[in-house]
Design a protein around this nucleic acid. Structure first.
Lengths: 95, 95
DNA sequence: TGTATATATTGCAATTATGCCATATATACA
DNA sequence: TGTATATATGGCATAATTGCAATATATACA
């Protein structure tokens, strides 16, 4: 894989994170897994819309799902994505 | 500013980074400022396209510009954005 | 088996992002 | 002043993202 392809892959991950609803989900998962219904209470969006956001995060490899009974539980695959938010806040403060 | 607004602002920054050309620029600036002509040699895009990518990064507060003579030099405002690489690479490996 | 509940998917319209071309602006220098 | 060089901007076509409504699927439980 050449250099440009590598940057494209990284951009994909960032793009998957680059939405307020998806950031709310990532933030909510920092203390452990949550089912869709719990996440639904946190975000202000249609159930189908949240479901699509979750699939974006899942396809990017940021979260994983685990179906148990009627519920699907999501959790962060790499909690380091949360560290990144600190830097983003610094950017916001400095601009 | 309420919580959702804060997440929207963070998403803006991430979205500004979420493009391969803009990641190449950010990476190129890790060792210090560079003029547009130097960046133009690194990316595979029209000059006007690069210019527009630079304005996206600038508007997001990720880079600043400094015009000296005929050249415009860009540099990272918060080099911590480079830390994304380690975490993003971890996400890519784990998925 | 039938029904309720949780979650995912499809269709579609509206918005936003992207890229290139042409053109504008601003500086340097003859 | 005129010309070349560096960078930015406007216009426009194409593609991608977003959100909701409707529908599908899958599990639980009566």
């Amino acid at each position: 894989m050449n250099k440009i392809e590598k940057f494209k892959k990284k951009a994909e991950i960032l793009k998957a994170m680059a939405h307020s609803t998806r950031l709310i989900v990532i933030d909510a998962l920092k203390k452990g897994e949550k089912c869709v219904c719990e996440l639904n209470d946190l975000v202000n969006a249609d159930q189908s819309t949240l479901s699509r956001h979750l699939s974006v995060l899942k396809n990017a490899g940021i979260i994983t799902d685990d179906k148990r009974g009627q519920n699907v539980f999501y959790k962060l695959r790499c909690p380091c994505v949360l560290d990144y938010i600190d830097c983003i806040e610094k950017v916001i403060k400095n601009r």
